[in-house]
């Protein structure tokens, strides 16, 4: 397990090490930023720094002391990790009660106690309310590290008890370098996926994986078929039911591209350059108002998915593609 932060997180990590050294560390930090910036990696780095007894200055952790060894083995007794039981599920109140029990006793190793809770917006109301008391006034040497993809969905009472640290988007050059080194791709590919992901590095690496590429290709084929007069319901049936979130994500970025291109005519701002033929066709037919309507619909669906509402994927695909088809052919 590598605990060093990603290169674009280094300034934030250094800041953390400084306030820790000065004894000005807040008891609760809420890390915010879109999915794919590596928040969990930063949390790992911060926990390692807090627990390591030897690390000084801007170093992350020595990797050799007893605390480091236990952390690297995946079970430090003074770290409590709270995540949804399944991906896409909510954090329930039982998990938060474990936090109350954890902070009510002193640290087993006598150092810091670290609570890693993510994503913070996935706590249901009861869970968030149960956390307030512990989060407000924990004992000495207790640090809550919360992360949230969409900070506006975290309860305001939770937000107000944390110091919010916003993760910056990496510089283009730095991100591309990282992507070519760690994403198994050449510079040209890196540039393409970088744009597709809108400058979010882990997202770019994930989208470039063969399976995700296939999904994207499939969606692109469906759209081509729609332009040629294909049946939206038949196309919807071909889409993967398990990938609702990702398909909506693609749809939204493509729509955003389309709106950008349609209103300005400037091709430089387009993120998915391989889709230019599709966009040109759509611009010929569509009206800006309809695009925005469709965008609102897709965002609403994505919000439902994020809230754990579990809509029927088949119905969402059908409703969505029917609207696309009407727009592409009008």
């Amino acid at each position: 397990m590598d605990v060093s932060p990603y290169p674009w997180q280094q300034p934030l990590f250094d800041h953390f090490a400084d306030v820790l050294g000065d004894g000005r560390l807040p008891h609760a930090i809420l890390l915010t930023g879109p999915e794919g910036l590596g928040k969990s990696q930063l949390v790992n780095a911060l926990s390692a720094r807090l627990l390591c007894r030897r690390a000084q200055g801007h170093a992350v952790a020595c990797g050799a002391c007893h605390d480091c060894r236990m952390l690297l083995a995946g079970h430090h007794p003074d770290v409590l990790r709270v995540h949804p039981a399944d991906k896409g599920k909510m954090i329930r109140v039982d998990a938060v009660r474990d936090i109350s029990a954890f902070v009510s006793q002193t640290a087993q190793q006598g150092g810091y106690r670290v609570i890693d809770l993510s994503p913070a917006e996935r706590m249901n109301t009861a869970a968030a309310n149960a956390l307030l008391k512990s989060l407000e006034e924990p004992g000495a040497r207790t640090v809550f590290l919360l992360s949230a993809d969409i900070v506006s969905r975290v309860m305001p009472t939770i937000r107000s008890r944390c110091q919010q640290w916003k993760l910056p988007l990496p510089e283009r050059q730095q991100g591309l370098e990282w992507l070519t080194r760690h994403g198994d791709m050449d510079a040209e590919e890196a540039l393409f996926w970088w744009d597709v992901a809108g400058g979010v590095p882990l997202q770019a690496r994930m989208l470039a994986e063969p399976e995700q590429r296939r999904l994207r290709q499939q969606l692109q084929d469906s759209f081509d078929a729609l332009i040629r007069g294909g049946d939206p319901v038949a196309e919807a049936a071909r889409l993967d039911k398990g990938a609702l979130g990702l398909i909506l994500h693609y749809g939204i970025t493509w729509l955003e591209d389309l709106i950008r291109l349609g209103t300005s005519g400037d091709e430089a701002g387009v993120r998915n350059r391989d889709l230019m033929p599709l966009y040109r066709q759509a611009i010929k037919n569509g009206r800006v108002r309809d695009w925005f309507k469709l965008l609102d619909y897709a965002r609403e669906q994505r919000r439902l998915v994020a809230r754990g509402a579990n809509p029927n994927p088949q119905l969402v695909y059908e409703a969505w593609l029917i609207r696309w088809a009407a727009l592409l052919r009008s």
Partner: peptide, 21 residues
């Protein structure tokens, strides 16, 4: 200690965490 109570007796050493309150 601030974090633990340790009891030594005979051949045994017992250590417990404390309640932080």
């Amino acid at each position: 200690g601030n974090n633990h109570l340790r009891a030594h007796t005979g051949n045994y050493t017992f250590t417990s965490k404390l309640v932080d309150g």
